[in-house]
């Protein structure tokens, strides 16, 4: 895609302001600094060279030392007064400040005094430079989980050490594993540890609030196949592929379920109810979710899934001495449920 005019203008002005303070700089360094190619820097210099104040006589133009250019060095000799770097716009300041505030509040940053100090000082300098910090956007990320677990992960990432963890899956199965931590993804709803798992002999992602215990070992992490980049595609992680489909009809108040859980489709019904179709990748999780949400669930299909949910609930009711199905509390929703 062609570069936008405003982005290029920003760089052209940036190059002049930077060179005015920095003296001669190589084309390669400029390209690195402004995140572009040496060829583009050459074009930018060519454009700057013929720009200036009206009249456009040689003395009116931005000028460079020609001999230096031939050596691949950009040496500004006339800035035509364009020496001041641009201040940050409101939107830019909002995007930076909101992100930094959210990072500062995460457990992973709070757990480490050195990290907190860096984020704190960056935030301080930024708000000094941008004036009154914009409060138009306010983001809080998920709590990371147990404080000791987060501290162990955080420290193992810094020291590049292997971790020993005890983990419970969403189906309530506990396992002990050794993992090489790659990255801690703190998102708005949950935090995830991306790691190489020695038990699975494959990359795995663990929800941090389900890590029951984490111990940093003194074994250095190793390089593993297929780990390069290790960017997690969360959509793929939850995508069900060819798993069977289930369709659930909910009362309106359960709408957050459709918004927070990956679903195949949502159909709004005329009476305000809505119908969700999803892939059953994890039957244990789905059964448990439907029991939790049951007062807002109108119907479940296929029938086998509905019977499974009902059967597990009946078994539990028997333990409460409440086995009879009375007039179910359906839709008397006293308050919205969440998680």
């Amino acid at each position: 895609m062609a570069e936008r005019a405003d982005d290029r203008l920003l760089r052209l002005l940036g190059i002049v302001a930077y060179l005015d303070g920095a003296g001669p700089v190589s084309v390669a360094d400029l390209a690195g600094r402004f995140g572009t190619t040496p060829a583009q820097i050459q074009k930018d210099v060519d454009a700057l060279w013929v720009s200036g104040t009206p009249g456009y006589w040689p003395d009116d133009l931005i000028d460079f030392d020609a001999a230096s250019i031939d050596r691949g060095v950009v040496h500004l000799t006339e800035a035509r007064g364009m020496t001041r770097p641009l201040r940050l716009g409101t939107r830019e300041a909002v995007a930076l400040v909101a992100a930094l505030r959210a990072m500062k509040a995460t457990d992973a940053v709070q757990a480490d005094p050195a990290r907190s100090a860096v984020v704190e000082s960056a935030l301080g300098k930024l708000t000094d430079a941008t004036g009154e910090a914009a409060s138009a956007v306010d983001v809080r990320l998920a709590p990371g989980g147990d404080r000791q677990v987060v501290a162990a992960i955080s420290s193992a990432l810094t020291n590049r050490h292997r971790l020993r963890i005890r983990y419970v899956t969403s189906s309530d199965v506990v396992s002990e594993r050794e993992v090489d931590p790659v990255r801690l993804h703190t998102q708005d709803e949950f935090a995830y540890l991306a790691a190489w798992c020695y038990r699975a002999e494959a990359p795995r992602t663990f929800r941090v609030d389900r890590i029951l215990e984490a111990v940093e070992t003194d074994v250095p992490v190793q390089a593993h196949p297929g780990e390069a980049g290790a960017e997690i595609d969360f959509a793929a992680l939850f995508a069900g592929g060819s798993s069977p489909l289930a369709t659930i009809r909910f009362a309106p108040r359960a709408r957050w379920f459709a918004e927070e859980v990956p679903v195949e489709s949502v159909r709004n019904l005329p009476d305000g109810d809505f119908e969700v179709t999803l892939r059953v990748t994890n039957p244990g999780w789905l059964r448990s979710s439907l029991v939790r949400l049951a007062p807002l669930v109108r119907s479940v299909s296929p029938g086998a899934l509905a019977d499974d949910v009902a059967g597990s609930a009946s078994e539990a009711l028997a333990l409460y001495g409440a086995g009879e199905v009375g007039e179910g509390g359906r839709d008397a929703a006293t308050s919205p449920d969440h998680h």
């Binding site: 669930v297 609930a313 199905v325």
Partner: peptide, 23 residues
């Protein structure tokens, strides 16, 4: 907790219990 379990138990169609109430 019992209220939720009762609602869930009514979702299935085991013999002898009323089916899920219509929307």
């Amino acid at each position: 907790t019992i209220r939720r379990l009762r609602a869930a138990a009514a979702l299935g169609d085991p013999p002898g219990t009323p089916g899920p109430a219509g929307p």
